[in-house]
Design a protein around this nucleic acid. Structure first.
Length: 489
RNA sequence: GCCCCCAUCGUCUAGCGGCCCAGGACACCGCCCUUUCACGGCGGGUACGCCGGUUCGAAUCCGGUUGGGGGUGCCA
């Protein structure tokens, strides 16, 4: 599977519910790796012990499995660069830090943010952030700080000049290092920070291409500078290439945040989106497979995916289009497949027995053709099918629909229907249709719409249902007539 | 404030100098199909932010401007 030395990674922090932005980033990394026959590494960035949770970790793994984005190295599968949890790699970070220190690429800093900010202000500097005050401290100064009880953070010494790289999605990007202050690699308490750990892991894991969100764009010059130092001290071999993916925006003009309901990736599974539908939609946020084509499979995406084709401008998340793409994938499914996928939802909703009985399974197989093109998400099947599976004594007619569709005027219609169906020799869709047509349309002179509405509500309980005659056939004569009788009072 | 990124229909995008008085999809609006709801079919409106420049020719290249977004932590 891994026929090239392309190595990419996704490196989520297990803090909270996984975000669709994470899925999009994972997808592009995965597609890039698969397209190039490379390796997709999955690493967990759980350095923030306060916020990382096992629950979040489990949900991310679960999500990736559901999506079908498989990884070559990482949790559950291991790999040559294990462990893949940052919380288990502190020795590696300590070693990296020690080597950088030895090469004077870092220095101890005793300042508080307030002190640095005050100095910046006093100097009239337009630049924000740390001012490099502790870069060249004398022994006396250090002793004085220590005597005050201060504990230092370790900062990286940014080089002078400018840092430029050729971003895989944006082209040449350049920063003057005077605007990128010396940054902390390690807390005063000794904990390594993301700024150190992320590049060190990428280096150790020999990541060749870093594809990540645009929010990390401005931290790239720091990482490139760090990388150069890591190469010096023998930890990194090369600086990876970077590609910054555009934001996924929510309502208004802000990036999709955890507060937006559509941001939560797990919710899509619960609502019955297909993984291929969600992924297809997410792929469209910043990438197009062709000028006149929106629907494609993961395999087709892998085949066509080029990182250079990804656009740089942010994309607004449009749930309606996401639904439409999902619906298109639903229609691509075979009847067997969609039935198979709908079943867990029906069980969960209590529509069918769990484990499913033979009778329910048989009925479901007959009913699915009636609704397979009427649902856009798997979870919607239950609403349409419940009337077929419900026990007669639990069957309920929607009060509002009954009032609208039956009322006073509907009684004769139901009576006529009952009479027409009661003695029907054969209980088939065709016979039912003919009988009702004759009795209601021809007999009572009703428009089809008015004729069948009351029957639909009486028998299925709702104004919206699968096709009526087929529904009646599946329900059976006894239950159908029983429901008509009930509606007649 | 400073730094950086971005800029084509309402939305996602195609377009990488002439094929574009700009194509597709979603959404929207009509119509057809129709026993409800869908599916499907047909049709419609709507976009290159602005100003300069380069060029025989610009949505496409360059500069500026405006607008939007992000960053600016001992978070990731």
């Amino acid at each position: 599977m891994t026929s090239s030395n392309v190595r990419v990674r996704m490196a989520p922090s297990p803090t909270g519910s996984p975000h669709v932005g994470l899925v999009r980033t994972a997808l592009f990394n995965w597609a890039f790796a698969r397209h190039h026959g490379g390796t997709f590494v999955f690493r967990i960035e759980d350095t923030d012990k306060e916020r990382s949770t096992d629950e979040s970790l489990a949900s991310i793994i679960d999500l990736m499995r559901w999506l079908g984005l498989d990884w070559d190295e990482g949790p559950e599968v291991g790999g040559p660069h294990a462990p893949y949890f940052q919380s288990e790699r502190s020795d590696l970070y300590a070693d990296a830090l020690a080597r950088l220190k030895e090469n004077s690429r870092t220095y101890d800093c005793y300042c508080t943010n307030e002190e640095a900010a005050a100095r910046r202000k006093a100097a009239g500097s337009k630049v924000q952030g740390y001012d490099g005050f502790c870069r060249e401290l004398s022994e006396e100064q250090v002793a004085a700080f220590v005597a005050e009880g201060r504990k230092p953070v370790v900062r990286f010494r940014m080089p002078d000049g400018s840092i430029t790289w050729n971003d895989l999605v944006r082209g040449e990007v350049s920063f003057e290092t005077e605007f990128v202050p010396d940054f902390a690699l390690c807390r005063a308490n000794g904990d390594s920070l993301y700024t150190l750990v992320n590049p060190v892991d990428d280096a150790l894991m020999e990541i060749t291409h870093v594809l990540r969100g645009e929010d990390l764009l401005s931290s790239t010059p720091r990482q490139i500078a760090l990388y150069e130092a890591l190469i010096e001290v023998g930890i990194a071999k090369v600086t990876p290439e970077f590609g910054h993916l555009p934001y996924v925006m929510g309502q208004g003009n802000k990036k999709l945040s955890k507060r937006d309901p559509e941001a939560h990736a797990l919710a899509y599974r619960e609502q019955g989106y297909l993984p291929e539908g969600l992924l297809n939609y997410l792929a469209l946020l910043g990438w197009a497979i062709a000028a006149d084509r929106d629907i494609f499979s993961l395999e087709e995406m892998v085949e066509a995916f080029e990182i250079g084709d990804v656009v740089a401008n942010p994309a607004r998340f449009d749930l309606k289009k996401c639904d439409a793409i999902n619906a298109a994938h639903m229609r691509l499914l075979s009847l067997d497949d969609i039935t198979h996928r709908v079943l867990p939802f029906l069980k969960k909703q209590g529509v069918v027995s769990d484990p499913v009985s033979d009778a329910d399974a048989q009925l479901l197989e007959l009913a699915m053709p009636l609704i397979s093109e009427r649902i856009n998400k798997l979870a919607e099947a239950g609403d349409l099918l419940a009337f077929l599976f419900v026990d007669e004594d639990a069957f309920e007619v929607d009060a509002e629909d009954a009032e609208k569709q039956i009322g006073e005027a509907g009684i004769p219609v139901l009576q006529a229907s009952y009479d027409a169906l009661e003695g029907l020799p054969a209980w088939s869709t065709e016979a039912i249709q003919t009988a009702l047509q004759t009795a209601l349309v021809d007999g009572l002179g009703l428009k089809p719409r008015n004729a069948f509405g009351p029957v639909r509500v009486a028998v299925t309980g709702r104004r919206i249902s699968p096709p009526l005659f087929e529904s009646l056939e599946l329900l059976g004569r006894e239950r159908s007539l029983g429901r008509l009788r009930r509606a007649l009072g």
